[in-house]
């Protein structure tokens, strides 16, 4: 019953490609100053969208606004055909990984417990986890390659493993959209590559739509289907090659992208 809005959305018209996220003329103010101006883009199902921009460009704000955590002053947002207000009840279709999960590393929970937290909204208030919840959690842990570490305290995992655990938590819902805010920040190069490979595999396997925020153009140049470049307002939107070849990108970042001269295949740690 709870999923009917979403099911309706996905069953409406089999052939045409569906827009899972539509943002039109979005303005967000904070303390009287605009932090986002005139943002518009559509996102089709199954796309990997990279949002790039310098620090303080409003990338995280954009994600949080799409999720309905920050109110906006102008424009429209539709996620799975729903406004943010309607989305509040359907948030279990969206997996979100915040920029930094600020948690106490001594917090006494295991990997399993952390991923089960993600199911909390599916289970619903006043209910306890049932068999299918436990199965979903274990599947999700296996999908991110943490099988065997279920019982380990979360604080004992490495940085890369923790990110995977949080990805598993975002996945164990009836997720169709993943919103990731700098998920690879703070990881070393190998872990970054592993994480991205995992993400792409999961995306293909489950047909997920991914929105990936990063200030690291290199990572996204390689993996994203589309790039949006914002710095308070929207500067560019298109396939990576087009966006990265543009003169505008240099203006936005106010610096040279010599290392992007090729295909963006070079990867450097951020």
């Amino acid at each position: 019953m709870r999923e009917c809005r979403v099911r309706e959305f996905f069953s409406d018209g089999e052939d045409r490609s569906r827009k899972v996220i539509e943002v039109h003329d979005l303005w967000v103010y904070r303390d009287g100053h605009p932090v986002l101006e005139e943002i518009s883009f559509d996102l089709e199902e199954g796309t990997f969208l990279g949002i790039i921009g310098p620090n303080g460009a409003g990338k995280s704000t954009l994600l949080r606004t799409i999720l309905g955590l920050i109110p906006f002053s102008r424009g429209t947002i539709k996620v799975l055909g729903m406004s943010p207000r309607e989305l509040k009840r359907e948030l279990h279709h969206i997996g979100y990984m915040p920029q930094q999960v600020l948690f106490d590393p001594r917090f006494p929970v295991s990997v399993y417990d952390v991923v089960m937290m993600g199911r909390a909204c599916c289970i619903g208030p006043l209910r306890f986890p049932r068999r299918r919840d436990r199965e979903a959690v274990l599947d999700s842990i296996e999908a991110v390659g943490l099988k065997g570490l279920e019982k380990r305290p979360i604080g004992e995992l490495s940085g890369g493993q923790q990110k995977r655990a949080f990805l598993a938590r975002a996945l164990c819902l009836e997720t169709s959209i993943l919103l990731l805010d700098e998920p690879t920040a703070g990881l070393d190069l190998d872990s970054q590559v592993d994480f991205m490979d995992l993400l792409v595999r999961l995306k293909e396997g489950k047909g997920l739509t991914v929105v990936f925020v990063s200030h690291d153009v290199n990572v996204l140049a390689r993996f994203a289907d589309e790039l949006v470049c914002i710095n308070r307002t929207m500067h560019l939107h298109g396939p990576p090659r087009e966006v990265l070849g543009s003169e505008r990108l240099k203006e936005v970042y106010r610096c040279e992208f010599d290392f992007l001269a090729g295909t963006g295949a070079e990867r450097r740690p951020s």
């Binding site: 955590l69 009840r89 915040p98 999960v101 937290m117 909204c121 006043l126 986890p129 819902l173």
Partner: peptide, 23 residues
Amino acid sequence: VLFFKELLFVSFDQETATASGLP
């Protein structure tokens, strides 16, 4: 007891708990 899972999630990571639609 009734709100244990919500309390645990909010205590661990309030931001994601809010984003996942918990009260």
